[in-house]
């Protein structure tokens, strides 16, 4: 569904490489995490795949098509991008924000037809957000705003979805809620690549994971094989332990008890 092959990137010819020979593959309908420490190139990789940055070397293929050959509109019908929740400069209504997801499907001069409105309302209803439809997007809580942005991506009706750290600014309960929603969307057949900082979210919710460390892919595969003490200590310099709790894997900092005693 999504193939990334030998991707290289640097911002200027003499600056250092950000991505060095990155290759991986995401299966149709799977929820794949892109995992790695700060500054490892996750965002750059996202921006290259979405054509927000020019592709310098290597190839990205979506649904069998090279993204170099795809126009802006075709890209927007193939892959949806869910940014981190944000506040736009103007207080659009929630239904207007979700309707924006229909833009690549709109035709004609003024564009917005009844059909598009209906699809937007449907997307809101699918995430149980119909009651927010007439609220101002800017007035919602961070968790609600993130949900609305996901509803917008659903309204876009693409086969692939990219999520940029969907839970980084949210509280614990909202993080779990958002991940459950992402899981639901993936189970409905959408291929998802989500970048995240939390190894636990990866092992609790994802089908596959690509670990990016020091500019290139360190490991790929199902989370139970990849999220191990060895991998984590490779990218985080020896500070993690992995345990089991009620059958789920859980990552925690090593020497936790000693740190507490020292305080």
């Amino acid at each position: 569904m999504l193939d990334i092959d030998a991707l290289n990137h640097r911002y200027a010819p003499r600056e250092e490489t950000i991505l060095d020979n990155v290759s991986f593959h995401v299966k149709r309908g799977s929820l794949c995490a892109l995992f790695g420490p700060n500054g490892c190139g996750k965002s750059t990789l996202f921006r290259c795949c979405l054509k927000l940055l020019p592709l310098q070397a290597g190839q990205v293929t979506m649904k069998g098509r090279d993204i170099r050959e795809m126009g802006i509109r075709e890209m927007a019908r193939t892959v949806a991008y869910v940014p981190q929740e944000h506040k736009p400069p103007f207080p659009y209504l929630v239904r207007e924000v979700v309707l924006m997801g229909r833009t690549p499907h709109m035709n004609g001069l003024f564009g917005v037809g009844k059909e598009e409105m209906r699809k937007a309302e449907e997307a809101l209803a699918r995430l149980d957000l119909a009651h927010l439809s007439h609220r101002a997007y800017n007035d919602l809580s961070g968790g609600q705003r993130q949900m609305v942005l996901m509803a917008r991506a659903i309204a876009q009706e693409t086969d692939i979805m990219f999520l940029d750290e969907p839970t980084s600014a949210l509280d614990f309960s909202n993080q779990i809620k958002i991940w459950k929603t992402i899981r639901k969307i993936a189970d409905s057949g959408v291929t998802i690549l989500a970048c995240t900082h939390d190894p636990n979210h990866v092992s609790w919710f994802c089908d596959a994971v690509v670990v990016l460390g020091n500019r290139t892919v360190v490991a790929t595969g199902p989370p139970d094989r990849v999220i191990t003490r060895e991998t984590l200590n490779l990218i985080y310099n020896d500070m993690c332990d992995v345990g089991q709790l009620n059958g789920s894997k859980i990552v925690f900092p090593s020497h936790l008890t000693e740190t507490r005693r020292a305080v």
């Binding site: 979405l50 802006i72 890209m75 927007a76 991008y81 103007f90 659009y92 833009t103 876009q156």
Partner: peptide
Amino acid sequence: NILSMGDDEARTLGVN
């Protein structure tokens, strides 16, 4: 409207 959400979002929503 789309443009006022920022350049990156506009591009991923199919607007140049």
